[in-house]
Design a protein around this nucleic acid. Structure first.
Lengths: 356, 356
DNA sequence: CTGAAAGCGCTTACAG
DNA sequence: CTGAAAGCGCTTACAG
């Protein structure tokens, strides 16, 4: 039904080889014939058959991008897609296609695996998810060229991950410099599906900075879906205490639900976050945080993979993503940075939320 | 390098046909031989070559999912991915793979198009984006089986879109029933990249409901990235006025930045939204809104496409997604639904934000 | 029930 | 500079 090189060749009375060479810009066809062929191909609406090309060239030009799915709609606001966008932005111009694979923790046996894994269908993959060990090992066997991107795998090669300890340290240092010595580390309870040891590491970083300054770090665990229940944690917010949110979801909860309950970050309490989202730059610039450019990380992971695909397949040296500190800023007079010097926080008025 | 059916066949001294039939569960192989073959294939780690299979079967089992990209990290919080997740949740178990394609408005000529379009590489595609007309026509020619999913295309077949007028009407009706007659419709300024006429339609719906009750609708346009500048719009919030946010981003801004500035939805002003996100159910349940389950819409679009792929290729009748009204609710005493009866809103205390 | 063979649409040595 | 041909790894009529 669709037109092939043979259709073009026979119409012009030339060999199929000539068509292939002309269309692919290879030498060995006379300029006049080349022009005829290219023109006719365009007029006939010829498009090469990817499967045939893949078979002979032994590469599919498809790249798997595996993300962890919590099920229906992810439920999390989809920070994994920040990374996916970064990956795609590099891979697509290079002529590859992003094949999205969503995985749950309870991955069934080989039969339940996505087709893209059951068959040989990928040139490589980028794994972006906390993944159970047995799944990891299986996939590693199946797809020879894999980059582990913030996936809880930290080998010497083919991995890229963020320095979470440093992210915590930056946050801790910032609150110390703002004069705080009492710090509340706000994190997810253990046992969350995305088990990738960022919680402990960020905490360790926070501690190292705060304790070096003679401060003390307390912890509070809260499921992010429960942040709405402000009564669970509102009493912990005090002007003398800096709150360090481990994940962006906690920071959003602390920012917004506290405000709804009458306590405002940057006015009634100090807030910093060890995490970041790409769109915060435009939509939440006043949040003081450890920068974590997932889009850029995805780009780097994609470049690591491309290097392995284009050159000889030697492992790519692992990379560590170093966080940077982003001081919250606001050019709106009524919205304040979430971290201000301790002396600028107001003491709670009688009856305000802080002391119930 | 990788093992093929021939490797298995020769090792067992049988024909390649036998291997193919055995592995694919087709009749025509003796049970004993079948068992031998299946076992050996497993031991040798055989995986079928997707390209070869695609070539002979004339189907790639790849499906393109096109989303609009604003560039770096999308910048928008990625509501398109709610839909993508829904699509993938249906397509993957059916043996297809989601190929993600991000498109910008300024799509260059055919040469700059993603490889997946330049070549014949897809069995079908789902287009989820407001798309410029010339791009639309080109892609429609290239991929014969396309479903237009909330993409600004509304033909009799192969389209699925949300009833935006109804979404506005539901929001308008809700505020009317809560006793409001003064309504502020809060929307994006025209000329936003994702041009898909939801802004006007939602407004028309709001108007129809409010004006039928003798109320009046005013409008205010604000870019969502500018919501942080509360001084631009804070003075518009009054207890007697119900604010109807057109898009979820505006609702979030109205919810959160107003709170940071001291005005609280459900206490100082009423807020409803014509839009929705999948994770609101868990993380923002108190927002009163027109329900819009993008995940479910993606699933429906995927089923429409699968129907065209599995059966004869006859066009799928278009579907309209009807919004439902979701009354905000909260089991936390300090967080209130964003829409409450007008009588329950407090009159602004002197000096509060509403009257500068 | 099974083997030998054609063919899917390309790329690329190999002869002329 | 160009044509005739092999082969990538499968599926599936076609003979036996």
């Amino acid at each position: 039904m669709s037109i092939s090189q043979i259709d073009i060749a026979s119409k012009l009375g030339v060999s199929q080889r000539a068509v292939s060479f002309a269309l692919n810009g290879k030498p060995g066809v006379s300029p006049i014939m080349r022009k005829q062929i290219v023109e006719l191909a365009r007029n006939m609406g010829y498009r090469p058959n990817a499967a045939a090309r893949a078979m002979v060239s032994q590469q599919t030009r498809n790249i798997g991008v595996v993300i962890h799915s919590l099920g229906n709609g992810d439920g999390g606001g989809g920070h994994a897609y920040d990374t996916v966008s970064g990956i795609n932005s590099i891979i697509e111009p290079a002529g590859y296609t992003t094949c999205l694979v969503q995985m749950t923790d309870v991955e069934s046996g080989d039969e339940g695996m996505a087709r893209v894994f059951r068959e040989q269908a990928l040139d490589g993959m980028i794994f972006h998810a906390g993944v159970l060990n047995h799944v990891r090992e299986r996939l590693g066997q199946w797809v020879e060229r894999t980059i582990w991107c913030d996936a809880g795998v930290e080998d010497e090669t083919n991995c890229i991950w963020r320095d979470e300890v440093e992210a915590g340290r930056l946050a801790g240092q910032a609150v110390v410099e703002a004069g705080f010595r009492d710090v509340l580390y706000f994190h997810s309870p253990p046992g969350e599906p995305r088990a990738y040891r960022h919680r402990e590491r960020r905490e360790a970083g926070v501690r190292s900075a705060v304790e070096a300054a003679g401060g003390v770090v307390r912890c509070h665990a809260e499921r992010d879906e429960e942040m709405l229940h402000v009564d669970r944690w509102l009493h912990l917010l005090r002007p003398e205490t800096a709150v360090v949110a481990s994940e962006y979801r906690h920071a959003e909860g602390l920012l917004f639900f506290a405000a709804a309950a009458g306590l405002c970050a940057g006015r009634d309490f100090a807030l910093v976050c060890c995490d970041d989202r790409d769109f915060y730059q435009r939509r939440l610039p006043h949040l003081s945080r450890s920068g974590f450019d997932r889009f850029a990380m995805g780009q780097r992971a994609a470049r690591m993979l491309l290097q392995r695909l284009e050159a000889v397949n030697e492992p790519a040296p692992s990379q560590i993503v170093h966080p940077t500190w982003i001081a919250g800023h606001s050019d709106s007079p009524r919205i304040r940075p979430t971290l201000v010097p301790i002396t600028e926080l107001r003491t709670p008025p009688a009856g305000a939320g802080g002391n119930s």
